[in-house]
Amino acid sequence: MHSDRASLKLKIAAAAGLLFLHLPIALIFVYAFTTEEKSFQWPPPGYTLKWFAATWNRPDVWEAMALSLKVAAISTLLAMILGTLCAAAVSRTKFFGRESISLLVILPIALPGVVTGIALRSAFSIAEVPFSTWTIVLGHATFCVVIVYNNAVARFRRTSGSLIEASMDLGANLFQTLRHVILPNIATALVVGGMLAFALSFDEVIVTTFTAGQQQTLPIWMLEELVRPRERPVTNVVAMVVVLVTLLPILGAYYLTRGTEAVAGQGK
């Protein structure tokens, strides 16, 4: 029989695992409060809140933050439209090449970001598209679509096809069926997909380096900042913000997908 209490060894192992995963992140947080600004010295010689004020007054931080939010928002929106339509087509109808399409849609997330980045960069230069916010958005959309698609396709598969027929049988036309039956049934999947896509886009570095021109998203700004030994703790403050901005949607997605079995899997 299993004992209810874990053995001491097991507890130590679990603690070690958690520390290994999270101690570095905790260090980043601690250094945001250090009084020493040129090198990361341990233990910090003193603690201060002045870097929060310093960050607040840095226009470059605000610019990078605004760009990141804008890019993440637009790519998420784009991905939600394209990903959902694609998922609907793949799971609701049968056509020639359907299997290949579902593989091709998932491929971008399997490819290393460097490959996607280089491919997009050369494609943009062949097509003579100047680098701008929109090239970053396109780059991010490639993997955001996959996230939304995966969530939506799983939900469509679990939703019985006869629900749509039942709705039409009860007098609803296509638009009413979309509004009263299809959207409510896939809503949580869409929101979850959107949140994960947003979080992915917000901290993306590799594809962004290849598709951004002179503009800096927040992660790119942080990379640049690490090289310069001035006001280093500002980077740590920004890092805290990034962690929060990406963690919240992921937590939200986690709570929303809990217990959705009861929502979607009825028909069969």
């Binding site: 629900l163 039942a166 709705s167 039409m168 049988d169 049934n185 009861a262 929502v263 009825q266 028909g267």
Partner: peptide, 17 residues
């Protein structure tokens, strides 16, 4: 279907979850 005066009881019931 939505303009016909017939209604269906589906094999899997198709209740809206």
């Amino acid at each position: 279907p939505y303009k016909r005066q017939v209604n269906t009881v589906f094999q899997d019931y198709a209740l809206f979850p």
